[in-house]
Amino acid sequence: MRLRQKLSYIIPILLMPSLAWSCPFCHSDRATEVRAGIAESFGNLSIVLAAASPFLVLAFVVIILHYGVQESEKL
């Protein structure tokens, strides 16, 4: 790959965070409120539990079914 081609990939990747940082939405009141709301929800244990615990319980059930309940040994 030529240097020019490489740069055409690398430069946008390097620029992207700064473009996002300077975009009007990121600095709007709405975006600030959304970020605050998300931070607040992450600080609430019941919300984090609500998101994670169903999948943890289901993972536990699947592991029990996979390793605990065997198909007939005759098979």
């Binding site: 699947v62 079914l65 996979h66 390793y67 309940v69 065997q70 198909e71 098979l75």
Partner: peptide, 9 residues
């Protein structure tokens, strides 16, 4: 042989 349960899992 737990792999026997793979399809069900």
């Amino acid at each position: 042989n737990f792999h026997k349960n793979d399809l069900r899992t």
